Simulated assay, not measured.
Amino acid sequence: MQFNGKAHKFGNDVNTDYIISGKYKFKTLDMKELAKHVMEDLDPDFYQKVASGDFIVGGSNFGCGSSREQAPLAIKYADVSAVLAKSFARIFYRNAINTGLPVVECDTDQIGQGDEIIVDLAAGVINNKTKGNVIPIKPLPAVMIKILNDGGLAAHFRKFGGFNFD
């Protein structure tokens, strides 16, 4: 899996209520509607700025807070390719994989706001075209890459009738 796009940088401890505010997630289950409000508490113009394939870049503990799947799903429906962070809250991390949203652990200090980057999950690197550097990423287990390639856990189960570890 390889993705190209622009970095939209946020800080540490971005909780799920910053990703999608509670004032929206209890009013609708329409993910396309929720996607219009992704990150708006931290950047009110985020949805207008983000282009298909771009990245959300965080610091440490990205996705802390609620265990609801709306946060990674709303990011995915905003057409973000992946979320890059130094570390993730574990339940957000698994919810992201399960919903088909790639999450990448790496040194995000080497990525600036607006940097053009290429994330190559297979090679285990991020190429920062803006800065001309290469950033190693923490590799994802093969089963998680398979789940992502299938579009998430539910799609993977439909395809194989359960987990496929081959």
Rank of each mutant, 00 (worst) to 15 (best):
Y47N: 05
Q110L: 15
K27I: 14
V125T: 15
G11W: 03
I135M: 12
L153I: 12
V125D: 11
K146I: 03
I147A: 12
K138V: 14
A122N: 09
D109Q: 07
F92E: 07
L101D: 13
G65I: 05
G151P: 13
H8S: 07
R90G: 08
M144A: 09
P44R: 06
F26Q: 13
I145W: 07
K86W: 05
I135R: 00
D107K: 09
L73S: 11
T130H: 04
G22Y: 13
G114A: 05
D43E: 15
A82M: 02
L140P: 03
N98Y: 12
A74F: 01
A142M: 11
V38Y: 00
Y18K: 15
K138M: 06
P139M: 09
Q113Y: 09
V143E: 14
Y47C: 02
R94H: 06
F10V: 09
D41H: 06
A71L: 07
T28F: 05
R68C: 02
I126L: 01
F92C: 12
K86L: 13
G152T: 13
R68Q: 01
S67V: 00
R94S: 03
K9M: 12
P136R: 05
S87V: 07
G132K: 06
N15G: 02
D79R: 14
K25R: 14
V104S: 07
S21G: 13
E69N: 06
A123H: 01
V80L: 04
G152C: 13
N127W: 13
F92Y: 14
N95I: 01
T99N: 14
L153A: 10
A122C: 03
G114N: 04
V125M: 08
P141I: 11
S67G: 08
K49G: 02
I118Y: 03
T28L: 09
F46C: 03
P139W: 08
A85G: 11
F62E: 00
M31Q: 14
G63W: 01
V125N: 12
D109C: 03
Y47R: 08
I147C: 15
Q48C: 02
I118T: 15
P102I: 09
Q48R: 09
